[in-house]
Amino acid sequence: MNRPQPARAAVFSAGSWGTAVAKIMADAGCDVVIHARRAEIADAINTTHRNPDYHADVELPAALTATTHPAAALDGADFLVLSIPAQSLRANLTAWAPHIGPDTVIVSLMKGIELGSGLRASQVIGQATGVPPERIAVLSGPNLAREIMAGQPAAATIACPDEGAAHRVQQACHTPYFRPYRDTDVIGCELGGAVKNVIALAVGIATGMGLGHNATAMLITRGLAETTRLAVAMGAHPATLAGLAGLGDLVATCSSPLSRNRTFGTHLGQGLTVAQAVAATRQTTEGVKSAEAIQALAHAHHVEMPITDVVCALLHEKVTLDEAVAALMQRPPKPER
C-alpha cells in the first residue's frame, strides 16, 4: 500500500519567525526547505541542523533543509511561506514569482502595511505574483518565536477566503504544541497583526518611561479599540479583533520583553533616539516601518487613531516624550463606546 507523500513547504526566509514556522511545519510532517539569503546559513542548517543566527541552541528536525536558490526551494512546493520585511516584499516576489507553482498556496506571516500604497501583505502578494486571493492565506496570532522554538503551547489563526486552502494550511502546521484555527477574515487578521506592532511601541515607550501597569493596560485596551475601528471600517468582522489575531497577538506583543516592537519602544522611552533604538534592537521592527502607512489608512478611512498618531510623531521626533503623554491624556473626554 502506497503512503501519501508528505506536503512540501518552502519557507522564505531563515529569520527568527521563519525558522520557527519551518520547525512547526516539519514537526507536523511536512518536508520543509528554508530559503536563506546567505550560503553559510544554508550550509549550517544542512550540516548541523541549527540556524546559527537565530535559535542556535535548538536542533532543527531532520526533514528540514535549506538552500540559497529560490527555484530549488519552490520546486514542487505545496506551500510558500513568506516571512520577510513587508517593505521589501514586492521587490522580492517579483523575482520569485516565475518559480511559484500553479497550485501553490502562499502563506503570509508578515505583519506590516506597504508604505506608499497602503496595501496589506496579501494584496501585495496578489499584485506581485498574479496568484488569486483563494490561494493566499495569512497566519497570525500571539506567537513569540522563542517560546515556540522551545515547544511551549501556542495558537494562531489562519485566514483565507477559501476554507479548503485554509484547512490544508491548518493541517500542515498542527502539532502537539501549536494549535491553528481557521477563518475567512483576511482583512481583520492582517490589520490586527499590523496595528498591534504600533501599539506595542507605545507600550514599550510607557514602560521605558516607568509609567506603570495602569498606563500599559490603558494603551492595550484603547489600542485594541482603535485597531478595531480601522479594521471594521476596512471591511473586517469585529469579532476577529477579539480573537487570536487581534487581542491575543496584541497582549503577547505588548506584554513580553521578547517582542522586538515593545523592546524598540522601551529604548525610546528610556531616552534613546530613533537611530540609537534601531542600532540597539538589531532586527526588523515592523511597527516602525508601518506606523506611517497605518496612519495614512486611518486618515483615508476617517478613523481616529490617537495612539498611532502619537507614535508617528515620536518616530519622526516631532514631539518629546512628555508632550506625547500629554497629547493622549489631555484629549477631550468622551464616551468609551
Rank of each mutant, 00 (worst) to 15 (best):
residue 323 E to W: 03
residue 281 T to P: 01
residue 207 T to N: 10
residue 112 G to R: 09
residue 31 D to F: 06
residue 252 A to I: 06
residue 77 A to C: 04
residue 232 V to W: 15
residue 231 A to Y: 15
residue 248 G to L: 13
residue 108 S to F: 03
residue 296 A to I: 00
residue 1 M to N: 04
residue 196 K to I: 05
residue 174 H to I: 03
residue 130 G to S: 08
residue 127 Q to R: 12
residue 16 S to E: 01
residue 323 E to V: 00
residue 26 A to W: 00
residue 32 V to T: 07
residue 137 A to R: 06
residue 289 K to P: 10
residue 135 R to V: 00
residue 233 A to N: 14
residue 38 R to S: 11
residue 11 V to G: 01
residue 274 V to R: 10
residue 57 D to G: 11
residue 199 I to N: 06
residue 8 R to Q: 09
residue 287 G to S: 11
residue 306 P to C: 04
residue 152 Q to T: 08
residue 145 A to M: 08
residue 210 G to M: 12
residue 153 P to K: 14
residue 58 V to D: 10
residue 310 V to F: 02
residue 173 C to I: 02
residue 205 I to Y: 12
residue 301 H to S: 05
residue 289 K to D: 13
residue 109 L to D: 02
residue 88 S to G: 11
residue 74 L to D: 07
residue 224 L to S: 12
residue 288 V to K: 03
residue 45 I to T: 03
residue 249 D to I: 01
residue 307 I to Y: 07
residue 172 A to M: 03
residue 312 C to T: 02
residue 22 A to Q: 05
residue 17 W to K: 06
residue 326 A to Y: 05
residue 88 S to N: 12
residue 206 A to Q: 09
residue 119 L to I: 12
residue 245 A to L: 09
residue 268 L to F: 05
residue 162 D to T: 08
residue 184 T to M: 13
residue 260 R to Y: 10
residue 51 N to C: 05
residue 37 R to N: 08
residue 203 V to F: 02
residue 320 T to Q: 04
residue 243 G to C: 15
residue 257 P to C: 10
residue 175 T to H: 10
residue 221 T to K: 15
residue 205 I to H: 12
residue 165 A to T: 11
residue 269 G to T: 10
residue 47 T to G: 03
residue 47 T to Q: 08
residue 106 I to V: 11
residue 78 D to Y: 01
residue 106 I to M: 08
residue 32 V to I: 02
residue 247 L to D: 15
residue 318 K to H: 13
residue 25 M to A: 01
residue 174 H to L: 11
residue 315 L to C: 07
residue 84 I to Q: 07
residue 92 N to Q: 15
residue 189 C to F: 05
residue 276 Q to W: 05
residue 298 A to F: 02
residue 257 P to A: 12
residue 134 E to K: 11
